[in-house]
Design a binder for these strands. Structure first.
Lengths: 339, 339
DNA sequence: CTGAAAGCGCTTACAG
DNA sequence: CTGAAAGCGCTTACAG
């Protein structure tokens, strides 16, 4: 189309200085209503758009936010990432910021460092937190504003999260109170803070319900199908009544394996899981699970970061994010059989 | 940490002009080996990193690529998007570019326009193509380099795709040759180019196998569960032998409904689908499906765009992307029952 | 209310 | 081989 129009062009066409043009655009400083309106209408007609780079260079901002995602999302089909990302995008739609995607590996945050040292972003959202989190440490050290989705043990880190501990507490209590006394737990990566939180909820529920905890039916780091199957073999020998899976990926593998072993659910064993995903809900029998609003989590994280970024300049309006809720969806897999 | 170091600082410290520093960094123009090495080692020690914005402003590049994803990914749990995104990120890791995420709605590409007019990106990857594609038309008109993942009917558009037509042709032929003569087809959004391509493969397979086509057992635009169930009711009356689903989302809904109707698979009806996802593979019975390498698709798209972006400057090296293959995974849902 | 000028950090003809 | 200078498009004290 027509040539890219700049603030200089406008100034020349209007017979004013570019200072004036810049000011009417930014709304800073007093401009006579008359010249302002003239300039504004000229801008509208010739549909001028500021050059983000130049603007950014002048006030050392990039108007970009990085979302850091672990490479492991490559392997699993969990919709968590996609849904929370959509929530983040909803927020940035109306903000001045755009989203830059950065992928990091377990012990390799070079991509994040690259993006930070090249000054490509103003702030960062961490899509997952680890007990010992290289990315978080680096950002803290560099004094880059960031918020993490998922809890961190470090209080210096701005964070948003669903209450996984209470969620797991409630789910566990619910099952224990249904006469499922020997309730196993299979969890994922122990280095994830979220794994620890769920574990704690499970423990707490046993204490409250005065049911002894059996460490032999608690398995963490169940990351590979083969290991999950071995766990399953062990559990079958342990005469358990039920199993809580910490995510739908674990649960899916478990379900296939149990079916191959002709174990009936819920007759022989009750099953419950985290994440109310399609794969669990369409399963026969459908699986009791905890449902989080991932998009809401993304929205909350993004709002929080925007608040931090604007804090210095504008009034710290700290939009209260509200408690992020969850829901326990009861399905066939934990329902008493009518026999 | 230490203050951000600039080209000016280096020049001062080294007693040379910033021209010289800039040149040794970019490698353009002749510099004496001696001063070059001095500067280079100084840079390494004080770990200097160029300011991307300033660099970009000077040579009017942003070093960003936009990935445009449709909002509808919000609704479905298809791992397609996530996997192809990971492929794209793999490529940009070693390139100078970063990935900016842009979400568009069916009839609203304002976010894309915003990113383009604000000069935030140098090129674009379209994650989905439509028969009439607002985004593609806009980019063509603005002369922004872009490539689409998925086929387009417009030859002016750089595109990468799996061969969905041949894939559907082969799958259909395979089933027809197994004595599944009345083979229904349930497809998604007709405005997607990919839907048309699969449909054509289905038709072509009937012609080749000299089996009459029955339009009454072909359903497109099966976008909502309720509609899919109604289709299913119709099909059950039509005495069909098998059904091909154009995606795993449709297939999942179909499977639940068929189970609720006590229809046995594969005994009563054979089922096959596109997308070899966990949900179909873990289903009992497991579902025959076509497997694509989504990460490879992302990689190919990204390489192609990088080629286009570099074409003007460097030598057009047009890395040949190679045919993107697919695989038909035969599972229980189409296997002859031994009765 | 308005403008001339310097500056953000880099690049690149042009002239030695 | 090297440098002074102008420029990318915007912002913002400073001075009217």
């Amino acid at each position: 189309m027509s040539k890219k129009i700049t603030i200089d062009n406008i100034a020349a066409a209007m017979g004013v200085s570019k200072t004036t043009v810049s000011r009417t655009i930014s709304g800073k400083g007093r401009i006579s209503a008359k010249t302002r309106d003239r300039i504004l209408s000229y801008i509208a007609e010739n549909n001028y758009n500021p050059h983000a780079l130049a603007k950014g260079l002048a006030n050392s901002k990039t108007y970009n936010i990085a979302i850091v995602i672990p490479e492991e999302y490559n392997l699993v089909e969990l919709p968590f990432f996609q849904k929370s990302l959509m929530g983040i995008l909803e927020i940035t739609e109306d903000a001045d910021y755009d989203i830059l995607l950065v992928m990091v590996k377990p012990n390799d945050i070079t991509q994040l460092i690259k993006v930070i040292t090249n000054n490509k972003v103003d702030g960062v959202i961490l899509a997952r937190t680890y007990q010992k989190d290289m990315a978080a440490e680096y950002l803290l050290e560099q004094k880059i504003p960031f918020v993490s989705m998922g809890s961190s043990n470090n209080e210096l880190i701005a964070q948003v999260d669903n209450d996984h501990q209470t969620a797991c507490y409630e789910l566990t209590s619910l099952l224990l109170s249904q006469d499922i006394k020997r309730l196993a737990l299979i969890g994922g990566d122990e280095s994830h803070v979220v794994t620890e939180n769920r574990y704690r909820g499970y423990v707490r529920a046993h204490q409250t319900n005065i049911i002894p905890l059996d460490q032999d039916i608690i398995y963490l780091n169940a990351l590979y199908p083969a290991y999950i199957q071995r766990i399953c073999d062990d559990l079958l020998k342990s005469r358990i009544d039920g199993i809580i899976c910490m995510d739908d990926s674990i649960c899916t593998i478990l379900l296939s394996y149990l079916k191959s072993k002709k174990i009936l659910i819920p007759e022989d064993i009750k099953i419950a899981s985290f994440y109310h995903s399609a794969i669990l809900d369409h399963n026969i029998p459908s699986i009791t699970s905890i449902k989080f609003d991932e998009a809401e989590l993304g929205r909350a994280a993004c709002c929080k970061l925007l608040d931090i970024l604007n804090e210095s300049a504008k009034t710290p309006m700290e939009k209260p994010v509200g408690q992020l809720r969850y829901e326990i969806i009861i399905r066939e897999s934990t329902t008493k059989t009518s026999s």
